[in-house]
Amino acid sequence: MTPAFSRRVPDGDTVARQVCDTCGFVAYDNPKIVVGAVVRCGSRVLMCRRDIEPARGRWTLPAGYLEHGETPPEGAAREALEEACATIRIGALLAVYTVRRLGQVQLIYRATLADARFAPGVESQAVALFEPDEIPHDEIAFPTVRWALAHERLDGGPFANPDDGEPPPP
């Protein structure tokens, strides 16, 4: 028997959700957590040309979805290894971005390359180090990559962007 769900406010909650009509199981639909890093090697920034959709062929920072059982810094380091075959040292949290339309919360860290080795991973066509003035800004994959690059150049503590749709001021 396939369970039937209806949208209603479960007991003890304030938000309408999908609830199983038979057993009361609540199917929560919560945001996904994305983790990544602005990785420096001296003055240069590590970037990956995507080999997957969305934005195939465009440049991004090593980033992706956090897996169950890992901390955000562990996830950011794993993503750098998967996308750029790079071992990185995670530093401070750089920014927290909310992308409402995609249901994402993005945690972006400052990081450095642990050594000079990197290569395209399975999701990347190419990986390169760019001086800040050489970054191909017209080929950037996502707005949050632009925001993170701008914030990484700032001094100070972590930046939190409470809204989506507008780039935060650098």
Results as ranks from 00 to 15, higher is better:
Met1Pro: 14
Met1His: 15
Ser6Thr: 14
Arg8Asp: 04
Pro10Thr: 06
Pro10Lys: 11
Asp11Gln: 13
Asp11Val: 12
Asp11His: 10
Asp11Lys: 10
Gly12Met: 07
Asp13Thr: 06
Thr14Arg: 13
Thr14Pro: 01
Val15His: 05
Cys20Gln: 12
Asp21Pro: 01
Thr22Met: 09
Gly24Met: 11
Tyr28Met: 07
Asn30Leu: 15
Ala37Gly: 14
Val38Arg: 04
Val39Gly: 08
Val39Ser: 12
Arg40Phe: 15
Gly42His: 00
Arg44His: 12
Val45Arg: 00
Leu46Met: 10
Met47Cys: 09
Met47Thr: 12
Cys48Lys: 00
Cys48Val: 14
Cys48Asp: 00
Asp51Arg: 14
Arg56Glu: 12
Arg58Ile: 00
Trp59Glu: 01
Thr60Trp: 00
Leu61Phe: 02
Pro62Glu: 01
Gly64Val: 06
Tyr65Gln: 07
Tyr65Pro: 01
Glu67Asn: 14
Glu67Val: 14
Glu70Ile: 08
Leu81Arg: 15
Glu82Gly: 10
Glu83Ala: 15
Ala84Asp: 11
Ala86Phe: 11
Leu93Val: 06
Thr98Leu: 00
Thr98Met: 00
Arg100Phe: 04
Arg100His: 06
Leu102Asp: 06
Gly103Arg: 05
Gln104Asn: 13
Ile108Thr: 15
Ala111Ser: 11
Ala111Leu: 11
Ala111Asp: 06
Leu113Gln: 03
Ala116His: 11
Ala116Tyr: 01
Phe118His: 13
Ala119Glu: 14
Gly121Pro: 04
Ala126Trp: 01
Glu131Arg: 11
Pro132Gln: 08
Pro136Trp: 09
Pro136Gly: 08
Pro143Gly: 05
Thr144Ile: 00
Arg146Gly: 10
Trp147Asn: 05
Trp147Ile: 02
Gly156Cys: 07
Ala160Phe: 15
Ala160Gln: 14
Asp163Trp: 14
Glu166Asp: 11
Glu166Met: 09
Glu166Leu: 13
Pro167Lys: 05
Pro167Met: 14
Pro169Trp: 13
